[in-house]
Each structure stands twice: as structure tokens, then as C-alpha cells.
């Protein structure tokens, strides 16, 4: 069964470090089972920090960093971790990476660190990271696990980037803090900066995603 039902990577084939699951893993995280638009995970931070594009992208970078690091170490330790404390071990690893990112942000990107407030620290409880560690890294080899972390982090970052782009553009008429819609004719719709704007933007994004992938049509056939 190993041959036909898997998309085998062209680069290194079925025997490479990804066990032939590289491309499939990447595609799953970014698109097919996107953590935000399909699994609707990580919503708290996705709604909270996306009022500016820059914040969204830094948050995405944080998730990629933590996801890759956590999956690598959870995978490396998967055969020596006692089953009954595996979740505590995962949280310890996640927390370590999150705090490292937070400290670096505080040292080299002070302004951003202040704007993101508690949300970088809250990645420790982010379902995406914990979910990937449990569902993937515990049963896969290190390289492909890192790829899975990267894919899911990217999937999160892309969704946040899109929401952040529209919220900042519509809400303030600016992108990365630079005015792009003329202040003389464009009246910023501040609804998009506030909490409801986040729900509206995310709702539209998921609707668009479903329209493109036809998820609901497939479900409709069954009934």
C-alpha cells in the first residue's frame, strides 16, 4: 500500500528523510487541512492581533518558529518520552520555544513586542502547536515533523496575513503603517479594527475558501 495512495516527493522519493510524505505534508498544512480556515484553530490570536498587517506577520513568524522547533524536539524524543507525561513534556518544549521567541522580540523588536502584548506568550496554549505535536510529531520522523510544523505555521501565517491585510487596509487605509488609500477621499471604516471586524473578515475568508475547495458541495452530495 506504500506505493499508490501517497504523493511521493519528486526530490527524494519514498526513502528520503520525509518518508515520501514531504509534499503531501506541506500541502496539508498550508491548504487541505489549513489550521485556521479548515480546522478553525488558533482563532483567539487570529482575531486579536490581525488589526495590523505587520502584527499578523510577526505572529505568523512566531507560530512557524515554535511549530518547527516543537515538532522537531517532540519527534526526536518520541521514543524515549513516557506516554503518561508526554503532554506535559510537549507543553514544556512549546513553552521554551515561545519564551525564546518572546525574549528575542523584546530585545530586538521592542515596539512589536509591546503591541502583541500577551498574545506571543499565549502561543503556549495554542491548539495548533499542541495538536501537531500530538497528531504528527509523536508518530513521525524529525525532518518530516519539522516540515509539518512549518506547513501548519505557514498555513496560519498566510491566513493571518490575508486578514491583517484587509483589516488594516479597510480599517485605517494604510498598510504596514503607510497610508495607501488617500486620506482626502477615503474614510477609514473603524469597524474592521475592532473585534467584530475580525469575525467578519475571518468569516468571509472561510466562505471564500469553502467556495474554492467546494467542501460544502461534497458534503451536500451525501445527504
Amino acid at each position: 500500500m506504500a506505493h499508490n495512495d501517497q504523493v511521493v516527493c519528486a526530490t527524494c522519493g519514498g526513502s528520503g528523510p520525509c518518508d515520501g510524505k514531504g509534499r503531501e505534508t506541506l500541502r496539508a498544512g498550508v491548504w487541505v487541512t489549513n489550521p485556521v480556515s479548515v480546522q478553525v484553530l488558533g482563532i483567539c490570536s487570529a482575531l486579536a492581533v490581525t488589526n495590523k498587517l505587520e502584527n499578523s506577520l510577526v505572529m505568523g513568524a512566531a507560530l512557524i518558529f515554535v511549530g518547527v522547533g516543537t515538532n522537531l524536539f517532540v519527534s526526536l524524543l518520541r521514543n524515549v518520552t513516557p506516554r503518561r507525561i508526554r503532554m506535559i513534556a510537549e507543553v514544556a518544549i512549546i513553552a521554551t520555544f515561545v519564551i525564546i521567541f518572546d525574549q528575542i522580540l523584546k530585545a530586538y523588536y521592542w515596539e512589536m513586542s509591546k503591541q502583541l502584548g500577551p498574545y506571543v506568550g499565549l502561543i503556549i496554549t495554542n491548539c495548533i502547536i499542541m495538536g501537531r505535536a500530538e497528531a504528527f510529531a509523536l508518530s513521525n520522523r524529525p525532518v518530516v515533523s519539522m516540515l509539518d510544523g512549518l506547513a501548519n505555521g505557514l498555513g496560519y501565517a498566510v491566513v493571518l496575513g490575508i486578514i491583517g491585510f484587509f483589516r488594516e487596509l479597510v480599517g485605517t487605509g494604510a498598510l504596514f503603517g503607510h497610508q495607501v488609500l488617500g486620506a482626502d477621499w477615503y474614510t477609514p471604516n473603524q469597524l474592521m479594527i475592532l473585534a467584530p471586524g475580525a469575525f467578519i473578515a475571518l468569516g468571509f475568508l472561510i466562505a471564500l475558501y469553502n467556495a474554492i475547495t467546494g467542501i460544502n458541495k461534497l458534503e451536500g452530495k451525501g445527504s
Binding site: L77, A89, I93, A95, Q103, K106, A107
Partner: peptide, 30 residues
Amino acid sequence: TVLYAAVLGIICAVALTAVDRFTDAKKVAN
């Protein structure tokens, strides 16, 4: 299990202490 938890805890603590030391001067100046 206890040994594993202790070793993992120590490694995490060492890593965090190292990062804290490394970024401390910058954070204080900021």
C-alpha cells in the same frame, strides 16, 4: 518517568537562562 521529567526540565531551564542572559543587555537598554 521522574528522571525524564527532571532532565527535560533542566534542559528547558538552561535554554531559557541562556537566552535571557544573551538578550538581557538589550532588554535593559530598551
